[in-house]
């Protein structure tokens, strides 16, 4: 009822969240197919830090699908598992770490009568290891930059893909 942390300056209540959005000229079905249905094909493309990626559950991508990834972020290798905890075609997809403290959200919103999609990406680091605490400010900034890079990469990739599909008018 009383947020004592903020009232008495006992500690920060700012979670480590990186959030960015971008406008992409495409329809939501195409974009969701790129991000969601083809997640295991495309994720390393928009996030080049992902060096290995595999689906460890059976069937097509859906809520409950599990994956494993190996990443190299700033020279540091990490392996983690995740589960898709929300999968709403054309609307959003949410991945949460399975034993690892992170969550990623991809949310789609139609604008301009459906011709443009606002893609919002959010990355939440649910905890910071004690040994990383001195670098908290750097982590905040890296995650913010990472979110911005993610949406820009997705935009570039989707628009490139669309350009190759569209027959040229000569």
């Amino acid at each position: 009822m009383f947020n004592l942390g903020s009232m008495f300056n006992l500690g920060s209540s700012n979670p480590v969240i990186g959030k960015a959005h971008v406008l992409i000229d495409c329809n939501k079905e195409e974009l969701f197919q790129f991000i969601g249905d083809r997640l295991f094909e495309n994720y390393p493309k928009w996030s080049p830090e992902v060096k290995e990626l595999e689906k460890i559950s059976s069937g097509s991508v859906k809520q409950g699908t599990e994956g494993r990834q190996v990443r190299i972020d700033h020279g540091r290798r990490s392996e983690s598992k995740f589960i898709i905890c929300a999968y709403e075609p054309g609307v959003r997809m949410v991945l949460i770490g399975n034993g690892d403290p992170f969550r990623c959200m991809y949310e789609l919103q139609e604008i301009n009568a459906g011709k443009t999609i606002k893609l919002t990406f959010t990355f939440e680091l649910l905890e910071i290891l004690a040994i990383m605490r001195p670098f908290e400010a750097l982590i905040h900034s890296a995650i913010k930059e990472g979110a911005e890079r993610t949406v820009q990469n997705i935009k570039r990739l989707v628009e490139q893909e669309q350009a190759t599909k569209t027959p040229s008018v000569v």
């Binding site: 009822m1 009383f2 947020n3 942390g5 500690g11 920060s12 209540s13 700012n14 979670p15 480590v16 969240i17 403290p101 905890e127 910071i128 290891l129 004690a130 605490r133 908290e136």
Partner: peptide, 26 residues
Amino acid sequence: NIWCDRWPTGDLHFFSNIFHEWPMEK
């Protein structure tokens, strides 16, 4: 600090009068 520290392992999480302190995003 509940926002950034690791919580102990448990099988029952209880929040009383916590969510009404924060916007939906938090």
